[in-house]
C-alpha cells in the first residue's frame, strides 16, 4: 500500500460519504444520476466477487463492504425512499446505460488477463467503471444549478482514479512484473472523461462563482 493508493481510496470514500450525507441528511438527490449509481453498484458487485474467497487485509475487506453497502443503499434510497425520490430528476436522467453495460461485457469477454468467470467479471467492472460517470456528467450538463455537494461528489469521484494512476506509476517502478495494461488504460480513459468537469470545477472555485457547465 503506497500513499497514492491510500489517498485514492480515502478520496473515493469521501465521495461516497458526501453523497450519502446529502441523501441521508437533507433527503435530496437533486442533480444525482440514478443511472450512474446503478452502474457503480454493478461495478462493485462484479469487482468484489472475491470478497469472501480471497482475504487480502482487514482494510481491503472493510473498504469493499463500505463501497458495496453505500452504493446499494444509495440506489435503494433513490428508488424506494419516498422523500428522496421527489428530488430525483428522472426527466433529465435519461442516459441509456444499457448502451454502456453490453459493450463493456463484450469487451471483457474479448480482452482479459485470464478467461475465468471471476476474472472476466472483474475486467467487466474495470471497463464499466471507466464509463459509469457518463450519465452523471450528462445530467450535470442538463441541470443548470449544480449544488455544492453534487459538485464535490463528482470532483472527488474523479480525483480518486487520478490518484490511482499515480499509484500504478509508483508500483510500476517499484515492483517487478507489475504490469496491468487493462486497468491502466481504463483508468486513464476514466480520468480523461472528467477532464472538462475538472476544468470548469476548478475555474469556478478559483473565480469563486457558481459551478455551471456549458450546454
Amino acid at each position: 500500500m503506497n500513499a497514492f493508493r491510500l489517498a485514492g481510496d480515502m478520496t473515493h470514500l469521501i465521495s461516497v460519504l458526501v453523497l450519502l450525507l446529502k441523501i441521508h441528511t437533507i433527503k435530496s438527490c437533486a442533480g444525482i444520476s440514478l443511472k450512474t449509481q446503478e452502474l457503480y453498484a454493478l461495478v462493485f458487485a462484479t469487482r468484489y466477487l472475491d470478497i469472501f474467497t480471497d482475504f487480502i487485509s482487514l482494510y481491503n475487506t472493510v473498504m469493499k463492504l463500505i463501497f458495496l453497502g453505500s452504493s446499494f443503499s444509495i440506489v435503494w434510497y433513490m428508488r424506494r425512499h419516498k422523500l428522496v425520490q421527489r428530488s430525483y430528476d428522472k426527466d433529465h436522467d435519461t442516459f441509456r446505460h444499457q448502451l454502456l453495460v453490453l459493450p463493456c461485457l463484450i469487451l471483457a469477454l474479448l480482452i482479459h488477463e485470464q478467461f475465468t468467470f471471476k476474472e472476466v467479471m472483474w475486467t467487466f467492472s474495470i471497463y464499466l467503471e471507466a464509463v459509469a460517470i457518463l450519465p452523471q456528467l450528462v445530467l450535470l450538463q442538463r441541470t443548470r444549478n449544480i449544488d455544492n455537494l453534487t459538485g464535490q461528489y463528482v470532483f472527488f469521484l474523479g480525483a480518486y482514479r487520478s490518484l490511482y494512476i499515480l499509484n500504478w506509476i509508483y508500483r510500476y517502478f517499484t515492483e517487478p512484473h507489475y504490469v496491468h495494461w487493462i486497468t491502466w488504460i481504463s483508468g486513464l480513459v476514466q480520468t480523461l472523461l472528467y477532464a472538462d468537469f475538472f476544468y470548469y470545477y476548478i475555474s469556478s472555485w478559483k473565480n469563486n462563482v457558481k459551478l455551471t457547465l456549458p450546454a
Partner: peptide, 10 residues
C-alpha cells in the same frame, strides 16, 4: 505474497 491473479487493489 498473494499470487499474481489475486487483486489487491479496490
Amino acid at each position: 505474497l498473494a499470487p499474481e491473479s489475486v487483486k489487491d487493489e479496490l
